[in-house]
Computed example of a mutant assay.
Amino acid sequence: MKLPVTEHTGRPWRIHAHTPDFTVEDVWSFRMPGAGPDDFPRALAAITAGAGLDHQSGPTRLLFAIRWKLGALLGWDEPKAGLGPRVHSLRDRMPADLTATAPRTPGPGPFAPLYELPDECARELANKTVHAVMHLGWVPTPTGDHELRMAVLVKPNGRFGRLYMALIAPFRYLVVYPALTRQWEAAWRDRERLPKQ
């Protein structure tokens, strides 16, 4: 479910101190019935186990296939356009006690880990269009459960990046996030097949 930006900015997440030049683009919630205060690592393990395009819906797979094809044709995702050569990783801004909580190795997917704490984590990616952070947080609900919150923070690469973000907005809201909601909530329901964290 889409949430107002204040549901992210109003919480004391550590990511705020390191992203003052980023804009909060999207905030989304994912129901995790029965989740307790210490279940964040289990939720992450469940959604990671169900990650990958082969677990996505047909329309989502098609959208990503088109995006990766365009990226290959236009050079959006070349290594020189990503983290390091063009864009400094946010890890460079963060204290060692924070970055030591997650390995530098990327995966799964295109995001590279920044940190992972008991109630929040962050991952980043960069290409020719944007430098983006996916922040996941663990939030108590009025019913006593906890739910997963995702915030997407972006720094578009100039006018082209801003245009790109505007063009993909309808696809994010109508296809990608609803499919991600179904996938992640199903992964939580199927968590019993995973070993305890």
Results as ranks from 00 to 15, higher is better:
G161P: 00
Y177I: 05
V152L: 14
R172H: 15
L180K: 05
L153P: 00
G158A: 03
R189T: 12
R159Y: 09
A179T: 01
P178H: 06
L153T: 00
D190A: 15
A169V: 06
E192S: 12
M165V: 07
F171Y: 10
F160A: 14
G158I: 10
R182A: 12
A166D: 04
Y177A: 04
I168F: 08
E192M: 03
G161F: 13
A186Q: 12
W184I: 04
A179Y: 03
L163T: 13
F160E: 05
R159T: 15
G158H: 02
I168W: 06
P170S: 09
A186V: 02
R182K: 10
R162G: 13
G158E: 02
P156D: 11
G161C: 07
V176T: 11
L180M: 13
P156W: 15
L174A: 15
Y164I: 09
Q183S: 11
Y177M: 09
E185S: 03
A187H: 03
R172E: 09
W184V: 04
F171K: 00
V175N: 00
G161Y: 10
I168G: 01
L174R: 15
V176E: 11
P178N: 09
R189W: 05
G158L: 02
R162D: 08
A187S: 09
G161A: 12
Q183C: 08
A187F: 04
I168C: 03
A151G: 13
G158M: 02
R191A: 13
T181I: 07
Y173P: 00
A166N: 05
Y173D: 12
V154G: 00
Q183H: 08
A166S: 10
L167Y: 02
M165S: 08
W184L: 06
P156L: 14
A187G: 05
A186C: 05
P156Q: 10
N157G: 03
V154I: 15
D190Q: 14
R193D: 05
R193N: 03
W184E: 02
I168V: 15
V154Y: 03
R172D: 09
I168H: 00
R162S: 12
Y173C: 06
R193P: 01
K155N: 14
V176N: 01
M165L: 15
A166R: 05
A187M: 01
A169C: 08
N157M: 08
A169Q: 13
M165W: 07
V152Q: 08
A186S: 12
N157A: 14
W188I: 06
R182W: 12
L153E: 01
V175C: 00
Y177N: 07
R182Q: 09
R189P: 05
E192T: 05
W188E: 01
R189I: 07
E185D: 01
A151W: 11
Y177W: 12
I168N: 00
P156C: 11
Y177G: 01
L167V: 08
F160R: 11
F160T: 10
P178F: 14
Y177T: 01
